[in-house]
Design a protein around this nucleic acid. Structure first.
Lengths: 204, 204
DNA sequence: GCATTATGAAACGCGACGGTTGCGTATCGA
DNA sequence: TCGATACGCAACCGTCGCGTTTCATAATGC
């Protein structure tokens, strides 16, 4: 799964070892640029090298192309915080959507989202990695919350969990995507979405 | 609102008039390229000219920069078909979401969506134009459908129309955006979304 | 010390593209 | 017929990024 070019395992490294600091700088610079809204196609190795204070050579020695570098950079992104479990489905869902909402506020996250969404046609490997790192874990958390709600009887037993997730996350996605032109997001957006959605999710 | 450089209104055009065909070709080529997944930043005047069978000069004579051209190109996109009004809220909503779904199938529309979503940070004028042309009209149609539903008593009188729209469109957006990696969209997706959402929207 | 490898800096040739200009031709009004 | 304007085409120069190479220097093992 390693996309880098190191042959770590073999002989016991003769000369000067590779600078771990340089590596960090490169990846950090890449993420910074992406965070500032630079699209993958606009990313330049030269730009990254300059920002990282590193020679181009140092980059080419480790990654053979831009996409490999971006993939590795994305890999270092930790799924920040899946919300801890509360006592009710409502609380958990509100917490979860609040995180989504807060992430959408920050340009950094928004740009990364953009890359994931728009470059998916062009860079399938990138999209796959992002899916694996960012989408799936959150998906899993939310599915678990919903499933627990069904077990506890807070939600209809016949509720389509996938659909419920689409409705909840989709509504938040809709707000964060389309309305930041017009009005700012209301503070209680997460609560309002959850309360409206739960109307149909609860047992009759 | 005209971004082009023509001075149409003034004197009565002396020499050879501008070819309407060339203009069409240029805009068509631009839309084609966008439809094929080329991002705005990757679009080249040269590429457009080549595709349109036109000299670069002919393009520069009309638009002073790339963004102006793209804006004009987007302008020619007609909001394809807002669904005609049926007899019930459910039918209208299903028809509406079905259109959304079918559009998402076609690469063309998907790429245009991508541009609208991802380049909005970088090209505000573009995003604004797209919003005006594609988003707002559909938004209006859907709001009207929901409002009519409330009047007819099919929906709760206290239903938040904006929220309802976010839930319905958001759910479809979610499916079309994230699941085309895994499974294909089910045929009755629109019906299922509407039926699930309406559970909470109807009067008790 | 010495061989080995990595480092940042600079320069290279190369191709893509931007934006301009000139050319010969086509199409209009007068 | 003549001037004006548009056309497609090709050539041009300047810029930028790529991917490579060279260079002096720094860090490691023997």
């Amino acid at each position: 799964m390693m996309t880098r070019q190191t042959a770590e395992g073999a002989a016991r490294a003769a000369g000067r070892p590779r600078s771990e600091k340089a590596e960090k700088s490169i990846i950090e610079a890449t993420l910074e640029l992406i965070g500032e809204g630079v699209a993958v196609s606009e990313l330049s190795i030269e730009g990254i090298a300059a920002r990282a204070g590193v020679g181009k050579t140092t980059i080419y020695r480790r990654w053979s192309n831009k996409e490999d570098l971006v993939v590795d950079a994305l890999t270092t992104l930790k799924p920040p915080i899946p919300p801890l479990r509360g006592d009710s489905v409502r609380d958990d869902l509100v917490a979860y959507l609040s995180v989504m909402r807060d992430e959408a506020r920050h340009t950094h996250t928004r740009c990364i989202m953009n890359i994931a969404m728009s470059d998916s046609e062009r860079h399938p490997r990138l999209a796959a990695r992002f899916d694996e790192l960012a989408i799936q874990p959150r998906r899993a958390v939310m599915m678990e919350v919903l499933r627990r709600g069904i077990e506890r009887g807070e939600l209809r037993p016949d509720l389509d969990v996938e659909m419920a997730m689409a409705i909840l996350s989709g509504a938040m996605l809709w707000y964060t995507k389309w309305s930041h032109r017009a009005t700012a997001l209301p503070d209680d957006l997460a609560e309002r979405i959850v309360d409206e959605a739960l109307r149909g999710f609860r047992p009759r």
